[in-house]
Design a protein around this nucleic acid. Structure first.
Length: 454
DNA sequence: TGAATTAAACATC
DNA sequence: GATGTTTAATTCA
């Protein structure tokens, strides 16, 4: 769940598993550290407010945030690793490709909300297929691909999951684009597609009842880009007629977070710029890491206990430091600092960075900064730091201790439950207030019940 | 043995 | 040429 990043696994717990990699004190698994390409990619995507990046942006991210690739951005030295990046994107089901009609360029790559495990796509491993079966199983890749990419979305309407609901809120989503935003899941993930789309709905418990608390964040969010003009609201509503509608305005800072992760408005803290191609680049903020992600999730879901606590008690001190981080994003000069920060996140490779105050690329940051350096400002905290999220800022201070089995002791649990209740209530309230009931059936009952169920 | 890296063939735009 | 998909060889835990 939660894609690579979020969910438990967060990574392919392969033999080299999470642990191995990250902890393997000392030795690095790869030249850049212990993270796998898939993890790096996941982080890159996660770092984008919209949780999606084009291939080129992923490359960029690598070059900017992973020292090892810093000097390997040129075409000469990049062939290899870029090939690997592409290979990984295609190979792992945790990455999904979303058609990018807006720019007419490459697709967006996102994390599969389904998690896709780090693993291999369902399809993969046709390993020992003979040619004939291979061809058959290729699922008419070529043709189909083309069809899916060019034909109207509804083309495959019947094939379960081959379709994806409109995807509003693309960073670059301009009104007209929104309507065209659709995804074309590769056959590989088609089996999940329906599920995925289903998950867009805030309440998607049925699907696999999994208490997968972390699924949502990664997907649900983007619909919300706050830059989506009110007029777009209707479109948003198309998606399951749920949560997506709030964006227009209404959401108040606190409400946002209160909406229980159903709608994450990130634009507020995302840095978004347009490059020459007119393509909007948004990068993000919260950089990586399962931890960070979970943090994000928590935030979205009302920030979890701590925040709530803070809210309720209003005793938590305004995280001034947080503010600072939030600010940094503006400057290019933060490059070095950034990097170190980044690195911290990148699997604890602090060593490497720390020592090398990186000057983010010899070249004038400006250009990049101009168009995307924003990305760089991975003030991992920004997510919460945004003014809008002020309320939840405190969360940062207490970097969510990944809930361990122990943490999940009754007591905490109770608190969580309590929180969750609040979350739902708030949600309910918000929704009712903002949506006039409009026949939207937000029935949290089941959820609550099940959660409360001892 | 499976996950991951790397290389490369091949297709599409 | 960039982007994507696949296959295969190889390494590693």
């Amino acid at each position: 769940a939660g894609g690579a990043a979020a969910a438990g696994p967060g990574r392919a717990e392969g033999p080299r598993g999470p642990g191995a990699a990250a902890r393997k004190g000392g030795s690095r698994r790869n030249a850049w550290g212990n993270q796998s390409y898939a993890e790096l990619i996941s982080q890159a995507i996660e770092s984008a407010p919209e949780k999606r990046l084009t291939l080129a942006q992923i490359y960029e991210w690598m070059v900017r945030f992973v020292p090892y690739f810093k000097d390997k951005g040129d075409s000469n030295s990049s062939a290899g690793w870029k090939n690997s990046i592409r290979h990984n994107l295609s190979l792992h089901s945790k990455f999904i490709k979303v058609h990018n009609e807006a720019t007419g360029k490459s697709s967006w790559w996102m994390l599969n909300p389904e998690g896709g495990k780090s693993g291999k796509a369902p399809r993969r491993r046709a390993a020992s297929m003979d040619n004939s079966s291979k061809l058959a199983k290729v699922r008419g890749k070529a043709s189909k691909k083309k069809a899916s990419l060019q034909a109207a979305p509804e083309a495959t309407a019947d094939s379960p999951g081959s379709q994806f609901p409109k995807w509003p809120g693309s960073p670059s989503s301009r009104n007209n684009e929104d309507s065209d935003v659709w995804t074309s899941f590769r056959p590989r993930t088609s089996s999940n597609a329906s599920t995925i789309s289903a998950r867009l709905s805030p309440i998607m418990p049925e699907q696999d009842d999994l208490p997968d608390e972390k699924l949502l964040p990664s997907l649900v969010y983007s619909s919300a880009s706050s830059n989506v003009p009110p007029t777009v609201t209707e479109e948003l509503e198309l998606i399951d007629g749920l949560n997506l509608m709030s964006p227009s305005s209404s959401m108040l800072p606190t409400q946002q977070s209160a909406s229980g992760g159903l709608v994450q408005r990130d634009s507020s803290f995302s840095l978004r710029t347009q490059n020459s191609a007119g393509q909007t680049s948004t990068f993000g903020t919260s950089l990586f890491n399962p931890v960070d992600i979970s943090l994000q999730s928590s935030v979205n879901r009302f920030s979890g206990p701590q925040t709530l606590e803070a809210l309720l008690t209003s005793s938590s001190p305004p995280p001034s430091d947080v503010m600072m981080t939030q600010v940094d994003p503006i400057l290019p000069q933060t490059g070095s600092r950034l990097n170190s920060q980044t690195f911290l996140l990148l699997g604890g490779q602090v060593t490497q960075n720390k020592t090398s105050p990186v000057n983010p690329r010899g070249k004038p940051l400006e250009q990049q900064s101009e168009s995307r350096s924003a990305s760089a400002l991975p003030s991992m905290l920004s997510v919460v730091a945004s003014p809008q999220n002020t309320a939840s800022m405190p969360t940062l201070k207490a970097p969510v201790p990944a809930p361990t089995a122990q943490d999940r002791l009754p007591t905490d649990l109770d608190v969580d439950m309590y929180m969750e209740n609040l979350e739902c209530d708030v949600d309910y309230i918000i929704n009712s207030d903002l949506m006039d009931g409009e026949g939207l059936d937000f029935n949290f009952e089941p959820i609550l019940m099940s959660r409360l169920d001892p």
